[in-house]
Computed example of a mutant assay.
Amino acid sequence: MEPPERPARGAPAPWDDPAATPLVVFDAVTKRYGAETAVAELSLAIHEREFFALLGPSGCGKSTLMRMLAGFETPSEGRVLLAGQDLAGVPPHLRPVNMLFQSYALFPHMSVEKNVAFGLAMEGRPRDEIGARVGEVLRMVKLDGFAGRKPHQLSGGQRQRVALARALVKRPKVLLLDEPLGALDRKLREETQFELMALQERLGLTFIIVTHDQDEAMTMATRIAVMDKGRIAQVGTPPVVYEAPASRYVAGFIGEINLVEGRVAAVEGRRVTVATAAGDLAVAEAAESVAVGEAVAVAWRPEKTRIVRAGEAISNGRAVMSGTVHDVGYLGGRTTYHVEASGLRLKAAVANASRSVERPLAAGDKVKLAVTPDALILLVR
């Protein structure tokens, strides 16, 4: 059966539709290990056909949350539901969920074909059905010519595909990916990200990935849940969590950010002026209501920062900060400048549009940084 079509461009996403029924629901879930709380009263809804990312540092509870869905852990409190069914008491092998581990966990003495077929064989499926389904998924992951090889005869990327085929062959409703690309080199990891996205789109399955890699989550996910100490700090699409972080924590965790503490000096509708060590910063569109005198932070992304030599003019309407280049980082596609300004360490990222080998600015140069009001983010939490 062909997977259902994605909503038409411009149609409301399922998570924005009050009438849409989520596929996976964590309902006030808590998980304790003795005196330690790994997940704390967490509620989350994930919809069918999402490529959903649980993102956060080690120890934030993201893998624990996934393991509760898979059935390897039991909630201390709350419920986990899949397609409306409470999964309490349902063992892992009876859940329509499969998991792809970072280690791949392949049987070294078995061929690729037998590794992929193992789960179906344990279910007692007919031999002809097993053969047909194994052949189908091996073609899907582009390993149909490798069926007779053993894991040690494969590259890291090929072993990862075998593990993926083994997870898909049982046709789960939800595929769980626990840091699945961590063992791959950077180039192969980036290639595999797009292969997984294309595969998820073609199959019409729900993928949930656990990762600490922000770029990985931003590339692959339809939505991201940023986690901190067993709780969800923010849920949103990649552009939302990047451009409109809900807190200092999210702003600092997702990508690079300039963040300056200050106090509200003036409020005019949604325009808020904040007095900071870098001068007065006027935020064009504050997401939250604040009062004069309230302690807040102002944040902006390095790539939205213009940097020029101290003597050069900058157009009106921008906040301007003077400083000295401290470090320069050349990253091929862009150059990042670390600037000391009013006792703060700020960053400006400039796209390298030309092939010039010499950097236009160097450590020790006096510069000005400028940022427009609509690029500034007001953070209360």
Score class of each variant (00 low, 15 high):
346 L>I: 13
114 K>I: 04
298 V>M: 05
61 G>T: 01
332 G>P: 09
238 P>H: 10
333 G>E: 15
335 T>L: 00
55 L>E: 13
377 I>E: 03
114 K>G: 04
234 Q>F: 13
281 L>E: 00
163 A>G: 15
17 D>M: 10
349 A>H: 01
64 T>K: 00
233 A>G: 01
92 P>E: 03
108 P>G: 11
163 A>R: 02
265 A>R: 15
296 V>I: 13
334 R>W: 14
24 V>W: 14
153 Q>P: 04
251 A>C: 09
335 T>F: 00
27 D>R: 14
50 E>I: 04
186 R>S: 09
88 A>M: 00
19 A>W: 01
75 P>C: 11
364 G>M: 09
71 G>Y: 04
137 V>F: 06
316 N>L: 12
86 D>T: 03
81 L>S: 07
36 E>Y: 08
109 H>D: 04
151 P>K: 06
348 A>E: 00
76 S>A: 09
18 P>L: 08
340 E>P: 02
103 S>N: 15
267 V>G: 07
266 A>F: 08
277 A>H: 11
372 T>L: 12
29 V>A: 07
351 A>V: 12
286 A>Q: 00
289 S>V: 07
108 P>C: 11
294 E>D: 15
333 G>R: 14
66 M>C: 11
56 G>I: 01
10 G>F: 09
18 P>H: 10
306 R>V: 09
261 E>Y: 02
206 T>F: 13
39 V>K: 03
157 G>K: 04
161 R>T: 05
167 A>H: 12
75 P>A: 10
28 A>W: 06
77 E>N: 05
352 N>G: 06
133 R>V: 14
232 I>D: 07
245 P>A: 13
296 V>D: 06
